[in-house]
Amino acid sequence: MAIRVQREDFDVGRELDALSVGNRRVGGLCSFVGLVRDMNEVAGAKSGVEAMTLEHYPGMTEKQLEEIEAEAHRRWPLEASLIIHRYGRMEPGERIVLVATASPHREAAFEACHFLIDWLKTKAPFWKVEETDDGAARWVEARDSDDAAAARWAEKAGGSL
């Protein structure tokens, strides 16, 4: 189990390799990488995103990520997991977040990975402000669809494995 909150980029391949090295019980790795995209839709209108800056609540962020990760390990038989979340200014195409899980079986790895990113999005105290191509800065608003995605996991008593 590991979490990292950092300004720097990360190397996905190297991080995934490190997750299973020396552990022969691992039969599958799953990962999700979130990127800055160059378009956002606000009230039906599309605007170009030049960059975004992520801020967070140092201390609480780490606590929340650790709790979310521990919950995933309670629900699924994971051999290892990793959450890396960046903060600071990023441009379209840059990586923001990496969530990865390792398990003897793929179902647990897939489900736990999905769970981690869904819960992270609604619980970890990060906020994004976008710079748009019309020169404005706009705080990104939370989406109901993210709350719904996280709520799905609340209804499940545990993983299927």
Binding site: G34, L54, H56, Y57, M60, H85, I96, V97, I117, L120, K121, T122, K123, A124, P125, F126, W127, K128, W139, V140, E141, A142, D146
Partner: peptide, 10 residues
């Protein structure tokens, strides 16, 4: 005590 808008990470 901290005050903030709904979170938007990930």
């Amino acid at each position: 005590v901290a005050f903030f808008p709904p979170v938007t990470g990930g």
